[in-house]
Amino acid sequence: MPAERIDGLAEREIVDVAGGVSTVRQDQLAEEVPLAVHCNGEPLAVMMVSPRDLDDFAYGFALTELGLAADDLVSIAAQTLLEGIQLDLRTRHPLPARATGHQRWLPGRSGCGICGNRSLEDVIRQPASVGHGGPIASSALHAALFELEQRQPLNAATGAIHAAAWAGADGKVMLVREDVGRHNALDKLIGVMQREGTDTGSGFALITSRASYEMAAKAAVAGMPLLAAMSAPTALAVDLAGRCGLTLVGFLRGSRHVVYSHPWRLEPA
């Protein structure tokens, strides 16, 4: 009996060469498909995504890119086309002026939320200050990282997938979302947190990528008090985090991490 197909994975025949010996076998690869986002019948953005948890992506994208709360969305419908997937959003009210001016007409790379914006003003934004949040032990960051490494089935199969996770102040991972794009993974995480009513003021987000400006901005828009990244942040991300009260942590690996802004939230080990 053939194995059940897992959404987000595809199989291709490869030649595996090791020690001079060639082996022909089937390999699992990460699916990457074009996603066209339409809102109230109008095209808004095109990006490359993993074709799973698209409802979560819709809610997260609506908040971080359009400024819409969960109850502003009336319906979400995905349809598979020859060219990819079309995601149709319907909102309770017309999009606000900021969102209308934020329209994109160029395809973006894997989840890049900036690609396709028409002006610099559409890109650089300053989120409101995040909440105070409770204290978080430094050890909780590393506990969450260890657990997250065990909860990435798509990446375990392919080695080509990013993840974003939400953990409690004790480091217990509560939610994980994966995608080929780091921005998409974080939007999916934010989306499922909105749908489930997760308190973004208590706990922290963990991402398996670098912390770019837009990743920090998305976390701040969602009201997350702390964002921890496995890789480095950019200078612009650190500046934004400093201004909006976000604790930004980078190089979370092994027993090490670097705090770039608002270290007062973290209790020493």
Rank of each mutant, 00 (worst) to 15 (best):
W264N: 07
A269H: 11
E13Q: 03
P268S: 14
S139Q: 10
N40V: 02
I6E: 10
A69N: 07
S231E: 12
F204C: 01
Q28M: 14
F204A: 01
P135S: 12
H102F: 14
G8D: 02
T80G: 10
R25E: 12
G101P: 04
Y213N: 06
S50E: 03
D187M: 10
A30H: 04
D179W: 10
A3R: 14
Q86N: 05
L236G: 04
G113T: 02
F57G: 01
T247Y: 01
L246P: 01
R5H: 05
E31K: 15
R98N: 08
L73N: 10
M48L: 12
L186A: 10
L120Q: 03
S119I: 05
L248K: 11
I136D: 00
A156S: 13
L44Q: 03
L68E: 04
A163N: 00
Y59N: 01
L63G: 00
L227K: 00
I124L: 14
G250C: 06
L246Q: 01
R12P: 04
I190E: 09
M230G: 06
A228C: 11
G133I: 00
M193C: 13
V123A: 10
V74P: 05
D72W: 04
V258K: 13
D239S: 13
V17R: 15
W166Q: 02
G245R: 08
D71F: 11
A144T: 05
M230Q: 06
H183V: 12
R265V: 15
G245H: 09
E4T: 14
L226E: 00
W166H: 02
T100S: 12
G181F: 10
P233W: 09
P268N: 15
G134Q: 14
A211N: 09
S139H: 06
V130I: 14
L154E: 02
P51S: 04
L186V: 09
S261R: 02
A160G: 07
G108W: 01
G191K: 07
I207H: 03
A219Y: 01
G111N: 08
H93N: 05
V221N: 00
M224S: 02
V259Y: 12
P51C: 02
L148A: 09
G116K: 13
I76D: 07
L95I: 01
N155A: 12
R125L: 08
A229D: 03
E267N: 11
L266R: 03
V173I: 11
R98Y: 11
M1I: 07
R92L: 14
G60V: 03
L120V: 12
V221G: 03
L186P: 00
A70S: 13
A185I: 05
V37K: 00
H142V: 11
E83C: 04
L63A: 07
L236V: 13
P34A: 13
N155K: 12
A241H: 03
L120N: 09
V123L: 09
W105C: 11
M47Q: 06
T208L: 15
S110C: 13
A99L: 03
L44M: 13
R177L: 08
S209D: 06
S22W: 05
G191A: 10
R253W: 09
Q28F: 14
G201C: 05
A211Y: 03
D55P: 02
A62I: 00
